[in-house]
């Protein structure tokens, strides 16, 4: 049963992470192109740092770091009169009330907490990637369009929301589509973050079972389980490719790009 749920876990992760990452990316891109120096520096640093560190290392690092950061800040808030240092040699010790999740919490809270950390990590990493894509896309919108809008007396926030944002998607879509593919392919890394996902269950269920412990003994089937996963991901990729193709066709409609022009010609 867990095996089938884990497919849902992956879909859920994708469903939550994609919009979050897009949101992070949007904010990051807006910050990076902001005229206010501090925001701009912050946005650029975010993009540069996350993109510059090897991916898996980042995943493994960030989950522990985030966990420790949360526990540390709760520790500071909840137990102000705690005298011992938090880092005792090789141990990370916080008071009982600051433990996350509380050691008395039921199992599902522990699982949800792990999942939430994973989603947040994914969103931060992919947010940086998409920030980079969106940043490029915003700059790719022809400047004449914005100049015209200014000439009509729009304020700069109006220009941004009414002219730049609606037009940038066509430039952003190839990059975002790529990112979506990459995101799909990054989901098995959940396993490394300790979430019981597809990979976990494939290993668990595929391993050889003896008649002593289960009603359904079978030899080592892990190969077949992983073959199924491989095919699942291939199909997922193919479907996404087709959908993105359709979307691109719709977005190019009426745009001042080579593809848009070709579409117009084909109709006329």
């Amino acid at each position: 049963m867990g095996f089938y749920w884990s497919f849902l876990t992956v879909l859920l992760l994708l469903g939550i992470t994609a919009p979050c990452a897009l949101g992070f990316g949007f904010v990051g891109a807006m910050a990076a192109r902001s005229k206010f120096f501090v925001f701009s520096l912050f946005g650029r640093a975010y993009i540069a740092i996350v993109r510059g560190v090897p991916e898996i290392a980042f995943f493994m690092f960030f989950v522990i770091a985030l966990d420790q950061f949360l526990e540390w800040s709760r520790h500071k808030m909840l137990c102000p009169d705690w005298s011992e240092p938090i880092r005792q040699g090789n141990d990370f010790v916080v008071c009982q009330a600051a433990k996350l999740p509380l050691s008395s919490a039921p199992q599902w809270i522990h699982e949800t907490y792990g999942f939430a950390l994973a989603v947040f990590t994914f969103a931060i990493v992919f947010g940086a990637f998409s920030a980079n894509v969106l940043f490029g896309a915003m700059r790719a919108v022809p400047y004449a369009q914005q100049e015209t809008a200014y000439a009509y007396g729009m304020t700069s926030s109006q220009v941004f929301w009414r002219i730049t944002v609606p037009q940038m998607w066509v430039y952003a879509l190839p990059g975002l589509g790529n990112l979506w593919m990459v995101l799909i392919k990054a989901t098995p890394l959940l396993f490394l973050l300790g979430v019981e996902d597809i990979v976990y269950w494939a290993r668990e269920l595929g391993g050889s079972k003896t008649a002593r412990f289960t009603d359904y003994p079978h030899p080592d089937w892990r190969m077949w389980y992983f073959l199924a996963l491989l095919i699942y991901y291939l199909m997922f990729t193919k479907v996404s490719e087709i959908v993105l193709d359709r979307l691109m066709k719709r977005l190019t409609h009426g745009q001042a790009t080579a593809a848009g022009e070709a579409q117009r010609r084909a109709k006329a």
Binding site: P188, F191, R203, D220, R222, L227, L229, L230
Partner: peptide, 22 residues
């Protein structure tokens, strides 16, 4: 090209390892 670009490297490693095992 499609098979190796369309699926996660992580799954490829797992599959290959168990394939080699059997």
């Amino acid at each position: 090209i499609f098979i190796f670009r369309g699926s996660p490297l992580f799954i490829q490693f797992f599959f290959a390892y168990f394939l080699f095992l059997s």
